[in-house]
Write a protein that binds this DNA or RNA. Structure first.
Lengths: 129, 129
DNA sequence: CCGGCTTGATTACACCTGTAGTCATCGCGA
DNA sequence: TCGCGATGACTACAGGTGTAATCAAGCCGG
């Protein structure tokens, strides 16, 4: 019944993701510290951040450690895993699973700058070593 | 108040996207024809498809033309626009807007096959003409 | 020692989404 | 002509999401 207590990998929503970014960036923080980082940018209040944090705990994306009367929050899910999952979802949904099609699209729609192109080229060269 | 009647570009959900794909593929269809295409694959019923279609009409992603007592549905939003928008969202959210970072991630996570790499390389060559 | 601030927990609530049932209508076939 | 089937409109409803108020408890400064 209750997936959240079993499944270690639940879908992370947009707002939750903003919180994750802060934790990935800074490692371990209290709720108030997270709020300092995001409440300004997104116009949230501390209660909102707390809700997001507890949902992330339920989803087993982060974990808590008691520190006196408060909690320290730190990420469990690795950023690379999240990024990889989301990228794969997109590629599957929109490009039939062909990552090259995504790159082609980016190139054609001019989402890639000269600089991007150069970087990719360098990357390819490296991959072919 | 009511964005749906003003804003021509509303966010398309996952299920709605499945319907859009059919319309992009086939052009203009009746509700039943759409259902024939997707109800099998996704285990939906005709009413579900009709709901999705009317939501898409509200979101101004598709339009209807009366044909006798029924409607013909056809896309307004271009697939390329949708794909571009979604790709941009992802790149912005996860890669700080740097498309090259997305490509780098795909490469590093081995989401790119030999074939993909070759294709991308060819693309780059072409772009630099 | 006590009241106020900090903090997590609980509750709230509107909107979106996925999925579908029901209803009224209207034209086609018998 | 008349009932049936197809069709769009309306309604439903549970679960997720964004955003927050409120509550209870406990520690800290006065």
């Amino acid at each position: 019944m209750n997936k959240s207590s079993e499944n270690p990998r639940e879908r992370i929503s947009d707002a939750e993701h903003a919180v994750m970014e802060v934790l990935w960036d800074r490692g371990t923080l209290t709720a108030s510290e997270v709020c300092e980082e995001v409440c300004g940018k997104r116009g949230w209040s501390l209660p909102t951040v707390k809700t997001l944090l507890s949902r992330l705990v339920q989803k087993r994306a982060i974990e808590t450690r008691p520190d006196g009367r408060r909690f320290l929050y730190s990420p469990i899910m690795a950023r690379a895993d999240y990024v990889g999952g989301e990228s794969k979802r997109l590629v599957d949904r929109l490009f039939g699973g062909k990552a090259a099609s995504l790159v082609a699209h980016l190139a054609e729609s001019e989402a890639l700058s000269e600089n991007d192109l150069a970087e990719i080229e360098a990357l390819l060269k490296e991959l072919k070593q």
